[in-house]
Simulated assay, not measured.
Amino acid sequence: MTQAEKPIIIIGSGLAAYTLIREYRKLNTDFPITLVTQESGDFYSKPMLSTAIAGQKSAEQLVTSSGAKMAEQFNLTLHTHATVKKIDPKHQMISVVLSDGQSIDIGYSQLVLALGADQIRVPIDGDASDAIQSVNDLHDYAIFRKQLDGKKKVVILGAGLIGCEFANDLALGGYQVEVIDLADQALSRLLPKPIAQALEQQLSSLGVLWHLGSSIQSISHDGDHLRVSLRNGQSINADLVLSALGLAPRVQLAKEAGIATNRGIIVNRQLETSIQNIYSLGDCAEVEGQVLPYVMPIMQAARTLAMVLAGQDASLVYPAMPVMIKTPALPLIVSPPPIGSSGSWSIKQIDGGMEGLFHNDQAELIGFALAGSATSQRATLTKLLPPILGAS
């Protein structure tokens, strides 16, 4: 087999991988593509995982297209429940353990790492630390849904985006919810304090209890329940504990292949890594110091990489891309200022909502946070923001 006949290999089957395939097939319908994934290969919306409990949706109901249908629709060779053990850049090969335990080597013309990210786990003392749940994919969600049967009270570790979305969803689903976070407010990396307090109040009205400014010390079995001990001396009884402490890009496979990594897998504006013919996108990729695990950046990167893989000139640009936080108790849309920005927030109450604008020291708008009815201003304000990554 000549190099030109070797397939494009994509590792991963999340939104990044399938969006890339969809965009590439618009440009080239025939070139062979092989997709290797540890999951089932089924297509589903990952953002739905933190909003599906109140609607009593099963894992199966979240699948919009099976792996087999995706393979047929996009003309793919699909290896599911398979693990990539090694990347050999010199010979442009990957070593894969298939679902039946067989080991094979597959050559590639171009390799794409769409590995995703893992939920951050921190060491926690106690004889029940292994009982902490996390939901990072469809399989995790199925387990969590099963664990919820007959339970009443859930403690969530982390008051970030995923933690707040789960808190809202679980409370709407009739569960008692308590949230623990070391920060003194919810969504500390995204919201100014007054809007965070408004969110906390709205979720409190659904029964959510907050333990802010403290962290978990240990988790232990207490009969049929779990006892969560905090560093401030408080303790909480729970039926389940859900960890939502944020995401860590999966970089180990790339590191072992000699690919440059930082927080994520380092790529240039063509999404190419430090090794020729190996690319990366999605939650695992880092572009000019930016790791953006959100839908819109993934879409932008997928369109750019599809063109690159098809032999066209393309360079990644990130316009301003506000993030919608799925907390129906208080709808939120945020475009946070760049980390380390100097400036200040101005907060304005409006009928049915709140508007937060962040101006830098030159009085330029570089971020916003909109709550409730103020979310209607999204399009107008987004036009005023500078791009996250402008044209190079």
Rank of each mutant, 00 (worst) to 15 (best):
L115R: 09
A71D: 03
L316Q: 01
S205L: 13
L172C: 06
I53R: 04
P297S: 10
A59I: 13
I124G: 06
Q201A: 14
R227A: 09
A257G: 05
D361N: 11
I236E: 06
S280D: 05
S129D: 07
Q110M: 08
P319F: 13
G173D: 02
L292T: 02
H225Y: 09
D224F: 15
D130H: 15
R269Y: 07
A16W: 15
L212Y: 07
K146F: 14
S342R: 15
L15N: 10
D137W: 06
Q362E: 08
Y318E: 04
Q92F: 07
Q38M: 14
Y175W: 02
A248D: 10
P89T: 08
K6T: 10
G14N: 08
I339A: 13
L389Y: 00
T83M: 14
L242R: 03
L389H: 00
G107C: 04
Y294D: 03
Q110C: 04
I162C: 04
T2G: 11
Q38F: 05
S58G: 00
A186N: 06
Q362A: 14
A363K: 14
P322F: 11
K69W: 15
A131P: 09
E272T: 09
L203Q: 03
E60V: 13
K146R: 12
R189E: 04
P331E: 00
N28T: 05
G340A: 08
I265R: 06
M70A: 11
I366N: 00
